[in-house]
């Protein structure tokens, strides 16, 4: 159980780190990275809940994380495209 707690803790720390980058940084790339780090934090926490205490792991969180990654990839691609469009405009 200790390992699972550590995972959860790291997940929360990553979430906060990503959020602070998003708020404090001004460059688009840094903020998009911040968003991704936030997402990774949530994924860590979800993966932790798959922990089955010695029994088979719960597959549902894996499905959720996979879906979450798909969403994160598309959102990142879109954010990058938007950032490029703004650069070109300047």
């Amino acid at each position: 159980m200790m390992v699972a707690d550590l995972y959860a803790l790291v997940g929360v720390v990553l979430f906060v780190m990503g959020l602070s980058a998003l708020i404090l940084r001004s460059r688009d790339l840094q903020r998009i990275l911040g968003l991704n780090i936030m997402g990774t934090g949530v994924f860590m926490l979800l993966v932790t809940s798959a922990h089955g205490d010695g029994q088979a792991a719960d597959p549902v969180p894996h499905a959720m994380v996979l879906t979450g990654i798909v969403v994160a990839v598309s959102a990142t691609a879109f954010a990058l495209a938007l950032s490029l469009a703004r650069e070109r405009h300047k």
């Binding site: 959860a8 979430f15 959020l19 998003l22 688009d28 903020r31 968003l35 936030m38 997402g39 934090g41 949530v42 926490l45 979800l46 932790t48 809940s49 719960d58 549902v60 969180p61 959720m64 979450g68 959102a75 879109f78 954010a79 938007l82 950032s83 703004r86």
Partner: peptide, 26 residues
């Protein structure tokens, strides 16, 4: 861009809550 970033942060806050609920009740 502002709408996108704010919206994504909103979704991630929501998802973090969902993760906690799933952790507790499955």
């Amino acid at each position: 861009q502002r709408y996108l970033y704010t919206g994504l942060v909103g979704s991630l806050f929501y998802l973090l809550g969902v993760a906690l609920i799933y952790n507790a009740y499955g």
